[in-house]
C-alpha cells in the first residue's frame, strides 16, 4: 500500500475509477491500479497493489519521499451510487482495495451494506478494519480456513441472496474467476451484479482497445465504457484468456526479479 501525492486526482476521483502509472519514463510499462482511498485535504491517493510484474516490484521498492515518474487519472466511469436498499459488497484478495471507496459511498447514501471479504489465507486479507467500520455486517473468509470462515466468498453470498430482505444489488470485485462465480451465484436470484474488470491496457483513454471485453455479445472497452459492467453479461472465459496473453513474459519478469533479489541478498549476507 502506498500513499501518493496527486492533488488533482484526489479531488476528481470518484469510487470505481482507476489510475495508470509508470515507474520508468522511457522503457517502463503503464499499469492500471485502482484508487483505494483519497484525501482531498492532504492531496493524496492511496494505491494498493500486489507484486506480480516488474513494475509492481519496482513500486514496492520505492521509499517515502520518492516520486513516481508518470501517473495519470482518474480514468474510467465512476460507480453509479444510489440508495437501493440492501447492498452486498464482495471483495476477493486485492479486489478489496477498489471495493473500499464503493462500499463507503454506498453506505453514505443510506444503503444497508453487507461486506464479504475473502482471500487465500489470513496474510492476504486486507482492509478488514476499514471495511468493518463501513459494514452493517462484515464476513471474512479464507480458502484455507486460517482466518474467519473457511469458505469461498460465494458461500456467504448465496446465503445472503436467500435471506430477507433480498439484496437489491451485489458489487463483486476480485480475481476474474471469483467475479465469474459471484455472478453465477446471483444469476438464479436475478439480483443485479456489478463487477469491476482489471484487464490489460495501455493508454486508458479508449485509444488502444487492448482492454476490450465481450459484454452481452458486444465488444466494450474497459477503460472508457467500464471498468464496471453487468456481471451477468460479461464473457469471463474470454476475458481470462485475454489476461493470459503475455503470461510467459510476466512469469519471466517475476522469476527474474526474485532471482536478482536472492542474488542481492546473498551478496549482502
Amino acid at each position: 500500500m502506498i500513499r501518493v501525492e496527486a492533488p488533482l486526482i484526489a479531488k476528481e476521483r470518484r469510487p470505481g475509477q482507476f489510475i495508470i502509472l509508470q515507474v520508468e519514463h522511457d522503457y517502463g510499462e503503464r499499469i492500471p491500479l485502482t484508487v483505494a482511498d483519497a484525501d482531498i485535504e492532504e492531496g493524496s491517493i492511496t494505491l494498493i497493489f500486489q507484486t506480480v510484474g516488474r513494475t509492481t516490484h519496482q513500486l514496492a521498492e520505492l521509499e517515502v519521499g520518492d516520486a513516481i515518474t508518470d501517473l495519470v487519472g482518474p480514468l474510467g466511469q465512476p460507480t453509479h451510487i444510489e440508495k437501493v436498499g440492501r447492498v452486498i459488497c464482495v471483495g476477493g484478495g486485492i479486489g478489496v482495495a477498489p471495493l473500499h471507496p464503493i462500499a463507503q459511498a454506498m453506505k453514505a447514501v443510506g444503503n444497508e451494506v453487507h461486506i464479504i471479504i475473502g482471500a487465500r489465507n489470513k496474510d492476504l486479507i486486507i482492509l478488514e478494519e476499514e471495511m468493518g467500520r463501513i459494514a452493517d455486517e462484515l464476513i471474512v473468509c479464507t480458502d484455507d480456513g486460517s482466518y474467519g470462515r473457511k469458505a469461498l466468498v460465494t458461500a456467504p453470498l448465496k446465503e445472503l441472496c436467500e435471506a430477507e430482505p433480498r439484496p437489491a444489488l451485489v458489487v463483486a470485485i476480485g480475481p476474474p474467476i471469483m467475479m465469474k462465480f459471484c455472478a453465477e451465484t446471483t444469476r438464479p436470484y436475478a439480483i443485479p451484479t456489478v463487477v469491476s474488470l482489471n484487464t490489460i491496457m495501455i493508454d486508458g483513454t479508449g485509444m488502444c482497445g487492448g482492454c476490450r471485453v465481450t459484454v452481452g455479445g458486444e465488444t466494450k472497452f474497459v477503460c472508457v465504457d467500464g471498468p464496471e459492467f453487468d456481471g451477468h453479461l460479461v464473457d469471463f472465459d474470454n476475458m481470462m484468456k485475454r489476461l493470459n496473453a503475455y503470461k510467459g513474459e510476466e512469469d519471466h519478469h517475476h522469476e527474474e526479479y526474485h532471482c536478482k533479489l536472492e542474488q542481492a541478498l546473498g551478496e549482502k549476507s
Binding site: I202, M207, C208, G209, G210, R212, V213, T214, T219, D235, N238, K241, R242, N244, A245
Partner: peptide, 10 residues
C-alpha cells in the same frame, strides 16, 4: 476478441 488480435493502435 481472441488472444492475438490487436488494433493497429495497440
Amino acid at each position: 476478441n481472441l488472444v492475438g488480435v490487436f488494433s493497429a493502435n495497440e
